[in-house]
Each structure stands twice: as C-alpha cells, then as structure tokens.
Design a protein around this nucleic acid. Structure first.
Length: 890
RNA sequence: GCGCGUAUAGCUCAGCUGGUUAGAGUGUCACAUUGACAUUGUGAAGGUCCCUGGUUCGAGUCCAGGUACGCGCACCA
C-alpha cells in the first residue's frame, strides 16, 4: 500500500458504506459470531429503546445511537460477549394519530368511520412498515453496531406472545381488573389515555361563583359550569363552622337538567376551606377527585348519585336536559352561565390562570368521563409474594429486590432516583385499555355476562374486547421479550438482566418504571443494572427541536455532509447525564475537523513508516509486537502520557462519562501528540517504531467514538478488523520526573515563541536566543537543543551568564531568556512589560506568604499542599528577582 | 403550594470526596501558510465562578437564605 495515495482530507462519503458492509459481513455484531476471546468473556447486553415507527430517525435517536454504540463497541473490544439488540416500536396512539392526520390532510373527514377497523389498520400497517425500513437503514447509516439478526418489533408475533403472556399472568393473579371509573378521555382521539400521556398547558379561565337556586344555602365556585348539571353533592370541610349545620342534608334543585338534582351536603377532609367559597360542587362523573369522593361515600354506606352529562363525543347528553343535549361543552357553558345570570344566581365572575390537561398526541383538552376499563392494580399484594407492584418498583431502586444488592437498578444521575420514588408514592392504578385500533387487542373474550382470557377465539358466540392495550404495556416487556421470553431461550439466560440502559429524561416514568414493574413481576429481577438518563437536545438558542418550530435537523443530512463520526462526537461532547444539551453546526464542524486531524496524523505516521520500512526488512508485526522504550525525553513523555490516557479513558467509559472521556482523548491526540510530539519527531527522526506503537493505540481508543474513520485507517495496515481488536491496557507506571522535565521544556519553548511574537518577529525568521540557566537546566537544554531550535525557529541558542542589555527578555520557569533584537529594542516598552509582570505576581506572593506564615494553615493543611505551595512561592520569588534585576539594569 | 434541576470567559460547557495564580472547545484579535493537515500552525486578549450571610487555616466546590431561568407533580371547587 502506498500511503501517499491517501487523499489529503478524509472523505467520509467514500468509505462509510463499505466499512459498515464489512462489519456486517464479518458477523461481529452478532455475539455468537464473535472471536473466541469474546465467547469466553462476560455477557454485555443493551436493549435499544425502539424508535417509534412514526416516520424517520431524528437527532435524538442519533444521539442515543451514539451513546449505545460507543458503549457496546467499548465492551466488545474489552472482550465481552457484547450485543446491542435493535428494534422498533409500533407506538400505538402515536402512529394511529399520525396516519389519521395524514388521511385527514388528504381530504378524509372521519377516517375511522369511513374506512372501518380493518382498512384503517391496513393503512397504518403499510405506513409503519415503510417507516421501519427507513429507520433501520438510518440506524445503519450512523454506524450502530447492533445485531440485526435479533431485530425485534413491539408488534411482531414473538412480542405479541410476550404481551399476551404477561397479561394472562397478571390477570390470573388478580392484578388486572375491569372497573368503572373516571378516565382521561380525548374526544379527538376517541380514546382514553394514561396520566403520563397528558401535557399540562397554562391558560386563562373564568372562575364563576354561583348558587344552584335562590334558597340554596351554600355558594359554589367553578371553571366548568356546564358540568354542574351533573352535580350530586356539595362537599365541605367537616370543621368548617359556616357549613357544619348543613352536612347530611339533601336539597332538591332544578337547574334545567333532565331531572331536578338531589344535592347532598357531605363532609370531606380533602376540601380546602380557604379556596373559593370553601365548598366544592361534586360532579362524580366528570372529575377524578369528585369520583373518589363518590366512592368514599359509597364505602361509608352514604352514597351519592352519579350523572354523566358529557358524552364520549364531547357533547352534552340527554341527562343534561333537553335544552343542553347535543351542545358542545363550550356552548353549554355559555348557555348555563346566561341562565344563572338571568336567574340572579351568578354571584361573581373572575379571570384566573389554570392548567388544563391536553392529549400529548391529539392536542385536545382531556375530558374526565366515567368508563368501564381494564386496570392494573399497583397496590394489591401479588399472590405468594407479600408485595405489591408498587413495593417491587420501590425496592428495585432502593434496597435491591429482597434486599439483594445485585438486584438493584442504579439510576444515573443519582437525583433522578428521588423523582422516581416520589412518583412511585403517588402512583395510581394504570388504565390499560385504549379505544384506538392500532395495538395489541385486549386478550379477553365475552359471551353474555361471561368474560375470559384467551388469545384465540374460545369458540362460537364469543366476542373479543374491542379495545387495545396501552403501548407502554408492550414496551414494559422490551428487555426480555427481545430475548425470546416467554420461551426459555439461551439469550434470556445469558443476557437478562441486561447490562445498561439509556433513555431520555422525558420517558423516565412512562418507560423506566414500566420496565422495572414488568421485570420484577415476571422474574423477581431487575431489567437492567444501570439506567443512564439523558436530557434532550436543544438548538443554539435553547429551544427544543421540533417540526412545528422549524428548527429540525435531519441527522442523515449531517452524515452526508460531515460524516457519521463527526456527527457522533459532536453529539457526545459537551453533554452530561440528566441535563439538556445544545446542538449546532459549529459543533459538527469541530467534529469534522477533528476527524480530519486524526486522518492526517495517521497519514503522516504511515507515510513516515513507509519510508523507513522500504529500506528496512523488519516486518510490521515485529515493530508492533514489543513495547518500545523511548530514547529521548519526548519519547518517554509521550509514552507516559499515552499510558495515563489509556487508564483515564477506560475509567471514564466504565462510568459512562462519554464527554469527559472523548474530550481527554481529543486533547491528547491534538495537543500532545500532533502539536508537540509529531513536531518533535520531525526533528529527532527515527521515530517509526514508537509512532507505529502509538497509532494503533489511539485508533483503538477512538474506535468506540468514531468507528468509521478509525476502522478505515486501521484497514490500511492490518488484515484483521479494528472492531474486535483488544482494548489497550495501561501499565500505570507513569514517571513523574519525565513529565516534570518535559513540562519545563514545553514552557521554555512556548515562552521563547511568545518573546518573539511579542516583538512582532515574523514566524519564518531565524533569531538568536540566549538563556541564563543553572546546571540542571543547561543540561536539559543541551540534550534537547535541536528540538528547541527547530520549534522556536532559532539560529542559535546560547547559555549565558547574563542577557545583553539591548535584547528583549522574559523569565521562563526560573530561567531568564533573551532574544537578540539587533539593537531595535524599545526600552520603555520593555520596562513597562517587565514591571507589569512583577506587578502581576505580587498579590500571589503576598497571599501565599501570608498563608505559609499562618501556623493554623501549616499545622492543619496536609503536607503535600504546604510543600507544593512553598515550592511555587519559591519559583515566583525567583522569577520576580530575575525580572527586577533586569529592570534595574535598564 | 410541594419537589427537582441549572447559574463559571462573548457563546457552549468541564471542574471528583473543599487545597495550583479557575480550565477546554468555539468565537475574537495579530502573525504565518508549497512542508501530514487552511478541515492548519504560532501567539494574544477574555472571568466579582448569580447575590448575601455562615462553616473552615482555606470555598467555584460545603451549609442557610435570596434572585433568575428551566422542568416535574398537585390544585384547577
């Protein structure tokens, strides 16, 4: 291979597709086809959070893929039996809502009525399949090394079996029940939704104070007057002296509903006497809180009525009365308010801010209506377990299940655990049924009064429940249904509990909690050991990316323009767990620039090596086989640094610190290696062996972050594939003396460069320096003279006792350095500069001296702090002395 | 109302269990450019670490209170 033929700039477009194909053909994505080293390694499994089949891959997905793929490649190289299991999500409501919207945009008015169940499902299925294909090809494009042979779909046969099996077990354990309750109802979506699928929006509302009739003794306040047509009670606090006397009384009032309302005054601790009038009109059918009171009264043997005045179509029912029937809630509200005004019953009307719940998929305001639904009981004791689902969910993140720490889910960042627990305590039963059609049909069949669980029709005359299951019910099985459950597969035995899970902050309740619920219930085990929670990506101004605000970025466009590697590191850098991060073009450009830098570093090393090997017959494998001991200070230093970086990056990846790991690697690669060591190597020569030891190591370290460019460079001088090579290890025997000496050398070079830059000497010009140094320093300079000369563009460097008066000077470490200006010195400017430097040091010297003379400090502070402070002070004092001496001579 | 998070250079962010003269990237300015790389190099300028108290020999870091922004839950009679 002639490395000189490699293009000057890395061209991602021309290599990525081939590289991905090569990986796929190698089979290394599949843990069963990994080399022996991995076969004998510990299992490591990540379940990919399945993207919804609602369209295309967005930037958030690309981010998650970068996280997961970095992790899986790291562990694969470390010799684990690593697998990333991919999949997609049928996303019940989200997908149906999307397809319905498209059909409506195409001119259809009521897709469900016009098409019917089967035809609409066909349309959705076609759309879902198309999305799936698109998404999968996009996941390949960003380089994710997932095992496509294990590809799963939440709605495929295996996963459907898992869903039905889970339902069956919970049903048989009596945890799933059918109950008539107030549910969250989306009129637009014609379906229930869970508490987690509601988005609260703030808006202005009118707050009306009124009474039911002229002689009704208690005032009521409400923002929903129209629901008052269904009131059956007034609740007051039991200790409220204003109303105590009425408790237990029933008032019959005629407000124009179908029948006069029998309003009973009841006492309830929940009522806040301070709010509104201190009395609450109870509408059991249209408020979850009121419904709870209704149930409480029933339990007390003191029941109140329930009247549904709003129907599933969002319009007033017959119960609301002839005058209201068929009106929308808003129309009814106006009409009822007018009636109250006319009757002189409206006391007050004021504007307030309130939060209303809206459907996160359909966008309309959620109505509370009573409905017969399937529920999952989170409080009931699981037969034979002495624990409820709520208990299991709590145990899994606190003590570990049964107090077993190996069955503990660690949430990262830690503080999310608090929020999780807070949520657990407030958890209500989970409404499982949905009236949309796209999803797993509830596996319950009815015949007259009879109901039973069955996947297939149990026979003649049985009819299946028409509802479908909440999409998160299937998502909850994801970590194990993807591994083959309910079948007792090897995958399940080997990989469950999975090792690591990552997910967005916004689905920590929806999904994290449900996976824990499901897994603890089925296996009495956790779904994953560590859960890494990340924030959302925002644009440059901190806005969320969304189609409606028009700031969307297609990750595939970025890949095409800048390459997948550039995209990946730009997504990972500057991100910390649990926090939102920003994403913008400059970050990707920076990623692309770095990719190119690595490319050119490699090109330099390889061509350099080629020149050497062309007139040398030792083989490459020999060169790489043994660790090379450096000859010069720079050699020893770079090997030291490399060793430190290996240790540090490994540690950081082990603890999921993606950004710090990547940034440390970048700093090493760009600053230490490229800017310093390679420049020195050009001077010192004969670095082929050491460079051919460094290059493979940095390619390995970079591979999890930037798989394409590293694999491609690797392929230029290797037969095997980088993806399965062994992760480098550190010897951890860093030599402090070497790094100290190199630091002196490095700052000397920087200071000499600064000296000439300050004097406005153009970089290309050769200059004369002289340096006042002690014997150790002179030796260091002598040993590295050629390097210093080359990197500072020096004609000559003399060790002197003093610097000539007409030369520019400065102090580096404790050496005085001088630059020959051939008499063109500006003495005044020089004096000002030296005085400035002295002044800059004086506050530091003062405060440090004060500290060191404080016996409280010297006695209480650890010794190393005192020692290092003392030596730094020494150095500063010497520096000031040199500067002052120089100044006084001018 | 309750809870959570964030506040460090113009911008985006690091800064572990308190101990360097507080860092990086990007942006800005100056100089350079056939040399692995202009997708570059060298150098410079840039900070009251939100405010007020406290603990401590020592606080960007810990504690208390406050301010600003973001988020969640609840209420929504």
């Amino acid at each position: 291979m002639d490395f000189k033929d490699l293009p000057k700039a890395y061209d991602s477009q021309s290599v990525e597709a081939d590289i991905y194909k090569r990986w796929e053909e190698s089979g290394y994505f599949n843990p069963d086809r990994l080399p022996d080293r991995n076969q004998n390694g510990a299992p490591f499994c990540i379940s990919m959070p399945p993207p919804n089949v609602t369209g295309v891959l967005h930037l958030g997905h690309a981010f998650e893929n970068a996280l997961m793929d970095t992790m899986i490649r790291f562990e694969r190289m470390r010799g684990k039996k690593a697998v990333l299991v991919p999949g997609t999500d049928h996303a019940a409501i989200a997908t149906q809502a999307k397809v319905e919207k498209m059909l409506i945009a195409d001119g259809m008015q009521y897709p469900r009525e016009e098409l019917g169940r089967e035809k609409l499902l066909d349309k959705i299925r076609t759309y879902a399949e198309e999305s799936k294909t698109t998404i999968i090809s996009q996941i390949r494009k960003v380089g994710t090394s997932c095992d496509w042979s294990r590809l799963a779909y939440t709605f495929d046969e295996e996963r459907s079996l898992a869903v039905n099996t889970l339902f069956e077990r919970m049903y048989n354990d009596g945890l799933i029940y059918r109950g008539y309750r107030v549910v969250n109802w989306s009129v637009k979506g014609q379906s229930t939704c869970s508490d987690d699928e509601i988005e609260h929006v703030e808006r202005k509302a009118k707050f009306y104070t009124f009474k039911y009739s002229e002689d009704f003794p208690i005032l009521i306040a409400t923002t929903r007057p129209e629901t008052k047509l269904g009131d059956t009670a007034v609740a007051v606090h039991p200790n409220d002296d204003r109303y105590k006397q009425y408790i237990g009384q029933i008032f019959s009032v005629d407000v124009g509903a179908a029948k006069p309302l029998n309003i009973k005054v009841i006492a309830d601790e929940e009522v806040d006497s301070e709010f509104g009038t201190g009395a609450l009109g109870v509408t059991p059918a249209h408020s979850a809180v009121d419904f709870a009171m209704y149930e409480k009264q029933k339990a007390k043997g003191n029941p109140i009525d329930i009247i549904q005045v709003i129907g599933e179509d969002g319009k007033m029912t017959a119960e609301a009365g002839e005058a209201y029937q068929g009106l929308t809630a808003t129309e009814a509200r106006e009409k009822f308010v007018t009636y109250l005004k006319d009757q002189g019953l409206l006391i007050k009307e004021e504007e307030i801010d309130q939060n209303v719940g809206t459907s996160d998929r359909y966008g309309d305001i959620i109505e509370a209506i009573p409905k017969l639904q399937w529920w999952l009981d989170v409080n009931k004791e699981i037969p034979g377990r002495k624990k409820s689902l709520r208990d299991l969910m709590r145990d899994a993140v606190t003590t570990g299940l049964d107090g077993d720490k190996s069955k503990l889910v660690t949430i990262i960042p830690e503080n999310i655990t608090k929020q999780y627990l807070d949520r657990i305590e407030n958890l209500r039963d989970w409404c499982l049924s949905r009236q949309i059609w796209w999803g797993h049909r509830i596996p319950i069949w009815y015949k007259g009064e009879e109901a039973k669980f069955s996947i297939e029709s149990p026979g003649e005359g049985w009819e299946q429940d028409s509802d479908t299951l909440d999409t998160w019910f299937s998502s909850g099985t994801w970590t194990f249904s993807t591994l083959g459950w309910p079948n007792e597969t090897d995958d399940l035995k080997i990989y469950h509990p999975t090792s690591w899970m990552q997910m967005g902050f916004e689905i920590r309740y929806l999904w994290l909690m449900r996976m824990i619920l499901t897994s603890t219930y089925i296996f009495n085990d956790i779904p994953f050991k560590d859960a890494y929670i990340h924030g959302v990506l925002r644009d440059k101004d901190g806005k969320k990316f969304s189609k409606s605000s028009g700031n969307g970025i297609d990750p595939i466009d970025i890949v095409n323009e800048y390459g997948s590697d550039a995209l990946r590191i730009s997504l990972l850098f500057g991100v910390s767990p649990g926090n939102d991060s920003r994403f913008y073009a400059e970050k990707v450009e920076n990623g692309r620039n770095f990719t190119n830098k690595l490319w050119n570093i490699s090109r330099f090393i390889l061509t350099n090596n080629e020149e050497r090997t062309s007139n040398d017959d030792s083989s490459e494998s020999e060169v790489r086989s043994s660790r090379f001991e450096g000859r010069t200070l720079a050699d020893k230093w770079i090997l030291n640094r490399l060793d430190e970086v290996i240790a540090s990056v490994t540690k950081k990846l082990e603890t999921y610190q993606f950004s710090p790991a990547g940034e440390e690697l970048r700093d090493f690669t760009w600053n230490d290696l490229a800017d310093w060591y390679l420049e020195i190597a050009k001077v010192e020569k004969g670095k082929q062996e050491i460079l051919m030891q460094i290059l493979p190591t940095i390619l390995k370290l970079w591979h999890p972050f930037m798989p394409f460019v590293t694999e491609f460079i690797w392929s230029q001088f290797n037969e095997d594939q980088l993806i399965v090579t062994e992760w480098p290890t550190s010897t951890l025997d860093a030599d402090n003396q070497v790094s100290g000496e190199f630091e002196i050398l490095r700052s000397l070079i920087t200071d000499l460069r600064r000296l000439r830059a300050e004097q406005g000497i153009e970089p290309a010009k050769f200059v004369e320096y002289s340096i006042v140094a002690d014997s150790d320093q002179s030796q260091l300079i002598g040993q590295n003279l050629e390097v210093i000369k080359a990197l500072t563009r020096a004609e000559s460097i003399a060790i002197a006792d003093t610097i000539a008066e007409d030369w520019a000077t400065d102090v580096s470490s404790t050496m005085t350095i001088g630059l020959n200006l051939s008499g063109a010195i500006d003495v005044d400017a020089e004096k000002v500069k030296l005085q400035k430097e002295i002044d800059a040091l004086s506050p530091y010297i003062k405060s440090t001296e004060a500290k060191l003379s404080n016996s409280e400090f010297t006695s209480k502070a650890p010794e190393h702090v005192v020692v290092s402070m003392r030596s730094k002070l020494d150095e500063a004092l010497k520096k000031v002395a040199s500067l002052s001496a120089r100044l006084s001579k001018m």
